[in-house]
């Protein structure tokens, strides 16, 4: 099964980015509470089950450390480090 990721977040100069699968989220806010750079915030937005969703509220702060991915008990979010754009010979 393919991952359903929601990538509404615009590309940014940040070192990392997060992917959120909204329908899996149960709104526990672990990702927000323990994001080391405070890049994530809880929102008033809800998913179909009525859980409040987190969002990358300060995308420029995300360093892609994936602590949100480690904490998320619902497998609904994870972070990745962006590849450095200046690097030559990027993988096709």
């Amino acid at each position: 099964m393919t991952t359903q990721v929601d990538t509404e977040d615009k590309p940014s100069p940040a070192k990392g980015e997060v992917y959120i699968t909204k329908e899996r989220c149960k709104g526990c806010s672990f990702c927000v509470a323990f994001c080391p750079t405070n890049a994530l915030g809880m929102t008033k937005k809800m998913n179909a089950k009525g859980y409040n969703l987190p969002e990358l509220t300060a995308p420029e702060k995300c360093n892609g450390c994936d602590l949100c991915g480690l904490y998320c008990p619902d497998f609904a979010i994870f972070g990745v480090r962006r590849k450095k754009p200046e690097k030559k010979g990027e993988q096709a």
Binding site: T3, G27, F30, G69, P73, D74
Partner: peptide, 25 residues
């Protein structure tokens, strides 16, 4: 892909654990 997914039976997700439960972590 979420690094946990290769370990999971994705056809059984979402799981039954409550919001804020630590088992998924």
């Amino acid at each position: 892909v979420n690094p946990v997914e290769p370990l999971l039976r994705m056809d059984r997700i979402p799981h039954i654990w409550c919001p804020g439960c630590g088992i998924g972590t």
